[in-house]
Structures are given as structure tokens and as C-alpha cells.
Amino acid sequence: MRRPVLPGFGLATGVTGVYLGLLVLLPLAGLLAKAGTTEPGRAWALFADPRTLSAFRVSFGVSAGAALVSVPVGLLLAWVLERYRFPGRRLLDAAVDLPLALPTAVAGIALTTLYVPDGWMGRLLAPLGIAVAFTPLGIGVALLFVALPFVVRAVQPVLAGLDPEADEAAVILGATPWQAFRLVVLPPLLPAVATGAALGFARAVGEYGSVIFIAGNRPMVSEIVPLLIVTKLEQYDIPGAALLGAAMLLLSFVLLAGINRLQGRSGGRHAA
């Protein structure tokens, strides 16, 4: 029998095309065009400015650190959630969604209050000589919060698809737990781990709300690129803001392309 043609192609595609064109394509093109029409001298001065370079170093360095730390923590959470049944498991699963659901400004003031020297965590860390709030370490704490769910959510479905009998067999055949984990469990998880870490990194690099309260925002020390863009805007340096924004946009395109390739390899679907 001939399959009927589904209706609504023109309407759905028209709505989608116009909506995306006006709300995504046009404004992003406007940003790139604004940056592209700035005099090269000005762009050079901006990107050679030590303050700009420092902001990129802080943004990318601390985001990479947070993404790296999120790997073992995320693996542990994913493992416990997928392999064990225990009271509080559903609650733990829901808690992983907190950083995705909590508005960034709310997370920002909460984390700052925790880690200022007389805060709950700050009081414990101050005697050890560790200052978190208003330092790059504080940025790292905020970005770890932001990046953590991505590794967990990327690894969970792959781990669920792994047969526990494989690592059981390894243990029965005499492997130590560490050998069984490293040689049997970890290899099939690696693409998902990398995808999750890359997604967390991409999110962390652009993060603004949860960082600015705890960062202290000192130029050359704890200033991130998104904040520098806001600063340029407040100084009416529109071309400067456009150039930095375009740079961030292009970098996120590169990251997105890389993540797509990773996702192709891990074969899983992930909540973005």
C-alpha cells in the first residue's frame, strides 16, 4: 500500500525557518559582522592587551580544571547511581540535576556565602590557609558545580548498557578491583566521559552568573571573559565587547564540532 504523505511540511518548516532565522541566525551574524567590521588595529590592541589575555587564561584554565575534577566525581556518582540500589538513591539522582535547574545568580550567591572566610566552608578552610572566595579557586568551585552534571548524565546511560557480568568475570578470573575497573569497565566508558567533560567545559567557559559573585573580579587575577564583555559594554566600548563576544562564539563553535564528533563515537544521546 502507498504510504500517505504526512501533512504540515510547509507550515512547520516555514515557522521553524523564519523563527530560527530571526532569533538565532540574524543576531549571531550581526555579532560576527560587528566584530568583522572593526579596524584591525583595534582588534589587535584588544587581543594583545594583557588584561584580555589574562581573562582568557583564567576562563579556559579554570574551566579545564573544573572539567577535569568533574570526571572522577562524576564517574563515582554515575557508578553508584547505576550499580547500587540503596535508600536515598532517587534523591541523589535528583540532586545531580540541581546545578542545571538552579538559576545561576542563586547558585552564585549561595556558593559565595558558603566560602567567604566566615561562611560554613570558609571557616573550615581558613585555618588551613586556603582562601576560596574572591580567588581563582572560588571560580573553580563555582565551575565545578556547573560542570558536574554533564559527566554524570553522559556516563549513566552507557554504564547502564554495560553488562555487570563482564566485570564479574574479571573479578572471578582473579583481577583486582582496580584492574577490573581500569581494563574492563573504563574503556567502553571513555568516549562518554570525554563527551561529558567537554560539555561541562563548554558550559563552564561561558558561565557568568554563578561565577561573578565568588570571583572577586580582580583584573589580571580573577576576571573571566564573560565579565570582561560586560565591563566593555558598561564602558560603552561596543566594538570591544563585540570582538570578545565573537571570539567566544567562534570558540564555542569549535567546541561544539568536537563534541559532536565525540558523541558520534560514544553513540549515546545526552541532555545538553
Partner: peptide, 27 residues
């Protein structure tokens, strides 16, 4: 790709694009 794009754009850039469109010095 366009549907997913806003996910990977920094929130600050997501605001900036509209300033560059409709702000005093925008297109």
C-alpha cells in the same frame, strides 16, 4: 544545528547580540 546552538552560547553573548542589533550603536 541552529536549534541546539543557543545551548552552547555564553549567556552574556546571548544578551550582547541584541545590544548589537538594537542598542544605540547597533545595526
Amino acid at each position: 544545528v541552529l536549534v541546539g546552538l543557543p545551548f552552547s552560547v555564553s549567556p552574556v553573548v546571548s544578551g550582547l547580540v541584541w545590544v548589537l542589533m538594537f542598542g544605540a550603536q547597533g545595526w
